[in-house]
């Protein structure tokens, strides 16, 4: 019997698989495909202090092995999310992680406080890395001091564990990770999308109305793996890994690099059953590779550089 369970701050997960924020809405649509209770957790679409309309269209573009999106944090505002969306998800036997975003520290604080009032939310994912709105938090996600400050404020505003979602659009992701760990983050979630652009040949202009968008999908998986591998060696808090996962083998790769659990994003669009397929196949993949549990595999891919000083 392979043990898929994972214990993370605030999150006792039956398995390490959860849909990533922004790729699953608030769960209603995918609840028509399968029982959401089968998921380890659900990361809700980002909520902001008040309603946001998001960006003009086109908001998505396909790329080689991936896609660009620039939705722009469209959401009905935290109070509506708590009133209309959280109760729906609370019917299911799964953990709810609320993704919180804002354009000011005060907005983050307001959203964190609001979610703190509902027992049905088990943890917060602090989104300081949305690349798609001018004031969508990315300014907090690329500066170590600002990231630490917003982490501290949100920690003080809420009793819930806080997972800080890191942006890959930085030169030193380990510095960001260390900074938010020191500021009190209970965990990390990484990586958010990479900023990209596509030019539409017929119009000879950027295809997305927002011009730039966040690149996701299998194209970014090696970047996510590398960043988790690096960060794992510099922080002791758990990591929820994400970036281009579409198979159980991908999940094992993330675990080996040092992730404690994983989130599935873009792959849900290709196959709505991706999370379920992975949950079903993961035990076999773990077993084939000599592991008895998810916990067994975490960080096992990290090579100790001190014992391997010869360079081929």
């Amino acid at each position: 019997m392979i043990d898929l369970s994972v214990e993370l701050p605030g999150l006792s997960l039956k398995n390490p698989i959860m849909p990533a924020s922004g790729c699953f809405g608030f769960g209603r649509e995918y609840s028509e495909y399968y029982d959401l209770s089968r998921l380890g957790a659900i990361m809700m679409k980002a909520a902001t202090g008040s309603k946001r309309l998001g960006n003009p269209t086109p908001r998505v573009a396909e790329t080689a092995s991936g896609m660009l999106n620039a939705i722009g944090l469209q959401n009905p505002g935290v109070n509506e999310v708590i009133k209309n969306e959280v109760p729906f998800l609370a019917q299911y036997d799964t953990k709810i992680i609320a993704n919180i975003a804002g354009s000011t520290i005060e907005e983050y604080e307001k959203v964190a406080k609001a979610f703190n009032q509902t027992k049905d939310v088990h943890a917060l994912e602090l989104n300081i890395s949305c690349p798609n709105v001018k004031e969508g938090g990315i300014q907090f996600g690329t500066d170590t001091e600002m990231a630490a400050r917003v982490t501290e404020i949100v920690k003080n505003a809420s009793d819930k564990p806080v997972y800080v979602k890191l942006s890959p659009n930085v030169s030193d992701i380990t510095a960001m990770a260390r900074s938010v760990e020191k500021a009190g983050a209970d965990g990390l979630s990484m990586i958010n999308t990479l900023t990209g652009m596509q030019i539409h040949l017929p119009s000879k202009q950027p295809l997305l109305a927002n011009k730039t968008g966040g690149l996701s999908g299998p194209a970014i998986k090696p970047i996510a793996i590398r960043m988790i591998y690096e960060v794992r060696q510099h922080v002791s808090i758990p990591i929820i890994g994400m970036g281009g996962i579409s198979t159980a083998e991908d999940v094992l790769e993330f675990l080996l690099a040092g992730a404690n659990a994983v989130a599935i994003g873009t792959a849900n669009f290709q196959n709505p059953f991706t999370c379920i397929d992975i949950i079903e196949k993961l035990p076999e993949v773990l077993k084939q590779n000599g592991f008895h549990s998810v916990k067994d595999a975490v960080g096992k891919g990290i090579v100790d550089d001190s014992s391997n000083i010869s360079c081929p």
Binding site: E29, K45, T57, V60, F269
Partner: peptide
Amino acid sequence: GCGVGACFACV
């Protein structure tokens, strides 16, 4: 994107 209403791309 998703085609089912979850991703808010086609609005």
